[in-house]
């Protein structure tokens, strides 16, 4: 079971967004994507999800484009940066939308949603009207929805998060990472775009650094988080502190 991007290139109107990118998205593994703005992180997720068509994306050794939209939706869930939802659904109703690709019956769907509500501590939010929630609260409901989509079969699931923690406070960021660790422990492949390099270093099993549409480095946090890699990708000078397996970065005062 695997989702592999093999030497994937992608361009829009002559602009090269991704250039020969290879990433191995492994089951039971948290892959963090880091890189400066416009590096191609979101494009990579959209290609990995099969939404944007590109050569070289293989789901279980088959081109992902051969998968039907429905069967893909049962395995690959994607939380985008922002959702357009502007109708007064309850949180619970939004989470139920994650069950749309499944034909498992109302009873089972309700049980799945209840389990996710329980696991993610969404009891109170789920009863409220989505449009009245704050940005972070909305995000937590959306995370719940994405979990509902793949909850039955986490072992064959790919869960992609595009900057999920941007709107979350410190405590809920931590909750989010606990949730994705739980997903990983149950066998899911998790890909998460992060801006906070220290959070990536602390929680990811594999980090992929993207810059200008190219993979600069892939590997364990200890291998990837070096002053040389971060300097090349972000143009910022850093020092690494802490354990060599999961280093912490400190930015130097000047570029």
């Amino acid at each position: 079971m695997s989702l592999v991007l093999h030497s994937v290139s992608f361009e829009v109107d002559g602009t090269q967004l991704l250039d020969q990118v290879s990433v191995d998205i492994k089951p039971a593994c948290i892959t963090a994507l880091i890189g400066p703005n416009g590096a191609g992180k979101t494009t990579l997720l959209r290609i990995a999800s099969g939404e944007l068509a590109a050569k070289g994306v293989m789901l279980d050794d088959q081109p992902i484009s051969d998968c039907s939209l429905e069967s893909r939706a049962r395995r690959v869930a994607f939380l985008t940066q922002s959702s357009a939802l502007d109708f007064p659904f309850t949180g619970l109703e939004v989470m139920h939308m994650g069950r749309i690709p499944h034909l498992t019956g109302a009873l089972h769907d309700r049980r799945v949603v209840e389990e996710v509500v329980d696991k993610c501590d969404l009891g109170n939010l789920s009863k409220r009207i989505y449009t009245t929630l704050s940005g972070g609260e909305k995000q937590r409901i959306q995370i719940g929805r994405v979990l509902c989509q793949v909850w039955d079969d986490l072992e064959s699931a790919y869960v992609l998060f595009d900057e999920p923690t941007a709107a979350l406070d410190l405590a809920h960021q931590l909750t989010f990472f606990n949730i994705i660790q739980m997903l990983r422990d149950r066998g899911a492949a998790v890909v998460v775009v992060l801006h906070d390099i220290n959070l990536a270093s602390k929680f990811a099993d594999q980090i992929c650094v993207l810059a200008s549409g190219q993979v600069l480095a892939t590997g364990s946090p200890g291998e990837v988080i070096t002053s040389s890699n971060i300097g090349k990708a972000f143009g910022v000078s850093i020092d690494t502190l802490g354990s060599p397996e999961r280093p912490v970065i400190q930015v130097r005062a000047t570029l």
């Binding site: 049962r74 357009a84 939802l85 659904f89 939308m97 749309i100 989509q149």
Partner: peptide
């Protein structure tokens, strides 16, 4: 009805839920 619910999330999100 279910597909209409999904599309309120956005076209992209609806596609991730398996809807053409």
């Amino acid at each position: 009805r279910h597909k209409l619910n999904a599309i309120t999330l956005g076209d992209q999100e609806a596609a991730y839920l398996g809807i053409s």
